[in-house]
């Protein structure tokens, strides 16, 4: 079909009928845009609406109970936040959690597994792939319980450490943020592994073989040939991992509830506690808005990475 059409004006997605030719272009545009409308209505009401509402109540002192109406209080919530030790603690823990589990853990381990899979024998590849992917497919809460059991004092990790004659400890108490980070690595590595496996499969064999003939060792090949060739996948994967990790709630909630104290309380858990356990919806939303802004920035970078493909 060669279609030359006028651009539809703003708000053009509305009523109209059919999709025949011979109509004035504007009407035809409307008719063609009609199928988009159910999705658009849902997205505007249930996604854009809450985001706009979020941006509004973040600047009010809305509370859960006992208050007839909320009032606008400007930047107070944000001032409170940046003076709040607990908030800064949550920011720090979120940073630790993201760097440890997403950037270092999932990404590196996923790449390592994908690279090993290129060389390993088929049964081992299938077995390992199956196990790692199962960890990923499990519902978040189930994964949380499995790792809770794994890290508890009476759990599997300590049993293994005892068997290796290494000192054991109560991981969820001594190093809760490390435990939940490992949990997130366990749960999320499969995604990176699959992305990198797909990327590595697309590298032409001739190139790596040529380098091998020229005497480049395994590490040199990895550094000078493989990594540059899959850099786009690395960028995409890092973005998606980070965005996913920023919004982890259920896993940490099940394992530690953010505790002990607030030593594993990342921003989503902090936001939840402020909004519901302390009834400060306005303050909780201000924190949510900050999280949303950080997420949006990552999202924009991600869009730039995919720029050529849309």
């Amino acid at each position: 079909m060669s279609v030359t059409r006028r651009e539809a004006g703003p708000g053009a997605r509305g009523a109209g009928a059919g999709a025949g030719g011979g109509r004035p272009p504007l009407l035809r545009t409307l008719a063609r845009a009609l199928p988009v409308s159910p999705a658009l209505v849902l997205l505007v009401l249930f996604l854009a609406g809450p985001i706009a509402y979020c941006a509004y109540i973040a600047f009010t002192d809305l509370q859960l109970t006992g208050q007839a109406e909320s009032s606008f209080n400007g930047l107070d919530n944000f001032r409170t936040a940046f003076a709040d030790e607990a908030f800064l603690n949550a920011v720090w823990l979120t940073l630790v959690f993201t760097v440890l589990s997403s950037l270092v853990g999932q990404n590196t381990l996923g790449l390592a597994l994908a690279a090993l899979m290129q060389r390993a024998s088929k049964p081992v590849r299938t077995l390992t792939g199956g196990i790692v992917v199962t960890a990923w497919v499990l519902p978040e809460v189930v994964a949380g319980f499995l790792l809770y059991a794994f890290f508890r004092r009476e759990g599997t990790l300590n049993a293994v450490l005892d068997w290796l004659r290494l000192p054991s400890q109560n991981w969820l108490f001594t190093l809760p943020i490390l435990a939940v980070s490992f949990a997130n690595v366990w749960r999320g590595t499969a995604f990176s592994m699959l992305v990198y496996s797909a990327a590595l499969n697309e590298i032409p064999k001739e190139i790596t073989e040529a380098a091998e003939v020229d005497g480049a060792g395994g590490w040199r090949r990895m550094w000078h040939i493989t990594l540059p060739m899959i850099r786009r996948s690395i960028g995409t994967n890092l973005m998606l991992n980070t965005l996913q990790t920023l919004s982890v709630f259920g896993l940490i909630w099940v394992m530690t509830r953010g505790g002990p104290g607030n030593r594993s309380q990342t921003l989503p858990l902090f936001m939840y506690e402020q909004a519901f356990q302390k009834s400060m919806i306005g303050y909780g939303t201000a924190v949510a808005l900050l999280l949303l802004v950080v997420g949006s920035l990552f999202s924009l970078v991600y869009l730039r990475l995919l720029r050529t493909e849309v």
Binding site: L47, I51, L62, L291, S299, Y302
Partner: peptide, 29 residues
């Protein structure tokens, strides 16, 4: 259509927004 690209970019942008962050306002709404 000239609207396709902006629409798709918005959609792609929305795919990676942290939904967790908007749950408090969704609850209030």
């Amino acid at each position: 259509s000239r609207l396709n690209r902006p629409f798709l970019l918005t959609i792609l942008f929305a795919t990676s927004l942290p939904i967790t962050a908007i749950m408090v306002p969704v609850y209030a709404l």
